[in-house]
C-alpha cells in the first residue's frame, strides 16, 4: 500500500476530491496547511509571502493504483493548459499496514 500526499491549491481541493471520488478513490483526508515551494513564496510589491495556504490531501491506495491516482490529481489540480507555479506537489510513500477500527480488518 502507498500513502499519496498531494499539496494543492485550496481552490482546487474540491475539484481534486470530486475527481478522486469519480475515479474510485473516495476515501481521503484533507488538512489545511501553509508552506512555500522552490520559488521561495511570492513577492507582491515589496512584500514576500512565504506562508502560502495550501490543502494537503492524503489518500491511501493499493500499489497498483498509484499511477491512476496520481494521474487524477495531476489533471484536477493543474491550472490552465500548461499549469502554473504554485499548483503543488505530490509525494508518495509506503504504508506497511492498515487497519479498520470498527472491524479490526487489515487492508484498505
Amino acid at each position: 500500500m502507498l500513502l499519496v500526499r498531494a499539496v494543492v491549491r485550496p481552490e482546487k481541493k474540491d475539484d481534486v476530491l470530486l475527481e478522486l471520488s469519480k475515479a474510485g478513490f473516495h476515501a481521503a483526508t484533507v488538512v489545511d496547511v501553509v508552506g512555500r515551494g522552490k520559488q521561495k513564496g511570492i513577492k507582491i510589491g515589496g512584500v514576500v509571502y512565504d506562508e502560502i495556504p495550501k490543502s494537503l490531501i492524503m489518500v491511501a491506495v493499493r500499489d497498483e493504483d498509484k499511477k491512476d491516482v496520481i494521474d487524477v490529481i495531476l489533471r484536477a489540480a493543474k491550472t490552465g493548459e500548461k499549469g502554473a507555479y504554485g499548483d503543488g506537489k505530490i509525494f508518495v510513500g509506503p504504508v506497511e499496514e492498515a487497519y479498520t477500527i470498527s472491524s479490526g480488518a487489515t487492508g484498505l
Binding site: 476515501a27 491511501a60 504504508v95 506497511e96 492498515a98 487497519y99 479498520t100 477500527i101 470498527s102
Partner: peptide
C-alpha cells in the same frame, strides 16, 4: 510496540455505529 499500540487504539475507538470509527495506517 506497534501491535499493542494499534490494538489499544482500536479498543478505545470502537463504537456500535458500524461506520466512521476510523482507520489506522502504519508507515515505515
Amino acid at each position: 510496540e506497534v501491535p499493542k499500540i494499534v490494538e489499544a487504539i482500536m479498543q478505545a475507538n470502537r463504537t456500535d455505529n458500524r461506520v466512521g470509527d476510523g482507520k489506522i495506517l502504519v508507515l515505515p
